[in-house]
Each structure stands twice: as C-alpha cells, then as structure tokens.
C-alpha cells in the first residue's frame, strides 16, 4: 500500500525566490514525522501546499493517494490540518466554531454534535465550550485549532507548530495525544523544539533553504556522540555561511 502522505519533487517559487526546492518524502501509517528547520526554511510553505492552500510551482503531493491539485476536495477530506498560528473566527464560541467545521465536513444533526463533543474531550475544551474564542488564552486557542483538525478523525494529520504558545503541562498533553493517535495515522508536525522530536517523532526531516538535508529517525541523527541540537546546528547553519 502506498504511503498516506506522498510528496514528490515539490517546488514553490515566489518570483525569483525558491521557498521549497525539489522536496520529496513520504509518511506511512503509524509514523510521526517531525519537520525541523530554521525560520523561513520552507516548512510552512510545504505544509500549505500539502493542505491545498498554496499551489505548487512543480511536483506533486498526494494524501491517501488523492492529488492535492487535481482532486483537492477528496484530499482535504482525509486531512486534518492545523495552520500556522491556529487561526479561528474570534467572535464565535468554541462550540459554534466546531459545529461549523463539522457541518462543512458533512456531519449533520446528532452526529455533528457527537463529533464536536469528542473533539472537545480530546483537547480538554469542555470548560470553555460557550466562550467566544477571542476571550480565550493562547493555549486554549491553539487547542481549538487542534480540535478542529481532529474532529473528523482523519487518517492524515498535518500540524504546523501544534505546541507553540502552550505551557509545559499543555505541551505534555498534546504530545501524549499525538502519541496515542500515532498507531493508525500518518502525522506530520513542524516544530522548533528539538526535545519534542525526541519525545514523539519516529522520524525527523531537517529542511533549510527549501531543501531536505536529513531524513532519518532521531536516534540515527544524533548517533555520533552529538546531541540532536548540535546536528541541527551543523546541518542548517552551514549553507547560510556559504551564501
């Protein structure tokens, strides 16, 4: 069976600037892939292309075998996506917002209600269910974004910095959640936090200047007596000095 996320020679150019340069990788069921790289490396752009928000300049991306450009609606059905910064509609209450997402995802009536309840349970949002999202703290807003991505129990999860802005306890909870879901999903998360890669990821992909520099399990990356942090710095700092 083909991998749930397949990216082949994906490229995005903005004018003369190449944000993502010939990136290829795949993510299988049961894998949690950590997408690492300095700011501006092309992590978010790759994820946006995978989610069908940015149109690739070249190459293909498939989710569950569905091309994100040729068959966008089918690809998006199998995908739970947390955009960078977890944008939500500030004036809506948590329940109203999640109901809206459930309705667009095709759930009706009682089933929509159950989906919303399940998603709120998973992300511990029950306490703020009737609060407008704009009155919530950063951590809660992030969890609302996460709830929205998990609502339809998708086979593929793409999470752009899921733990950004969370306190240590909340970070721990989100990591636990990811670990619990991992066996039957393909999960791609981007992060700046290297310990997170050690904690939850089965594989790490390091990207800088739009190119994939490393793609292996975190333990293999850190092997030759160096910490993951040292490896990251060695890999990503070098091209910048050369330029």
């Amino acid at each position: 069976m083909a991998a749930l996320i397949e990216i082949e020679r994906l490229t995005k150019r903005f004018g003369a600037f190449t944000a993502v340069d010939d990136v290829s990788f795949s993510v299988d069921r049961g894998e949690v892939v950590g997408f690492l790289g300095p700011n501006g490396a092309g992590k978010s752009t790759t994820m946006k292309m995978l989610a069908g928000f940015v149109t690739p300049s070249a190459g293909t991306a498939r989710i569950c075998g569905k091309d994100v450009v040729d068959d966008p609606v089918a690809a998006k059905r199998s995908l739970g996506y947390l955009p960078e910064g977890a944008p939500t509609y500030p004036e809506m209450t948590v329940t109203a917002f999640l109901k809206f997402v459930a309705r667009i995802r095709g759930y009706r009536g009682i089933e929509a209600g159950e989906r919303v309840e399940d998603a709120m349970d998973l992300t511990q949002l029950q306490g703020v269910r009737l609060q407008p999202i704009e009155t919530l703290s950063k951590g809660f807003k992030r969890r609302v974004g996460l709830a929205q991505a998990l609502l339809h129990d998708p086979p593929v999860l793409v999470l752009d910095e899921p733990t950004d802005g969370l306190d240590p306890n909340q970070k721990h909870e989100v990591r636990e959640l990811i670990r619990r879901m991992a066996p039957d999903k393909a999960i791609l998360i981007s992060t700046h936090i290297l310990e997170e890669v050690d904690a939850v990821c089965t594989r790490a992909i390091i990207i800088a200047h739009g190119k994939v520099l490393a793609d292996s399990p975190p333990s293999a990356l850190a092997k030759p007596g160096k910490s993951l942090e040292q490896v990251f710095r060695d890999l990503t700092a070098r091209p910048a000095e050369a330029a």
């Binding site: 928000f53 609606v73 998006k76 955009p83 509609y89 997402v101 929205q148």
Partner: peptide, 14 residues
C-alpha cells in the same frame, strides 16, 4: 487579515 482564509480554504469545500 485573521488568516482564517487558510482554514476555510483547506476544509473539504469547493
């Protein structure tokens, strides 16, 4: 401005 366009257009909706 809010960035929610990314959310809306990545939902399975033509």
């Amino acid at each position: 401005r809010l960035g929610t366009i990314e959310l809306l257009l990545t939902l399975p909706l033509p």
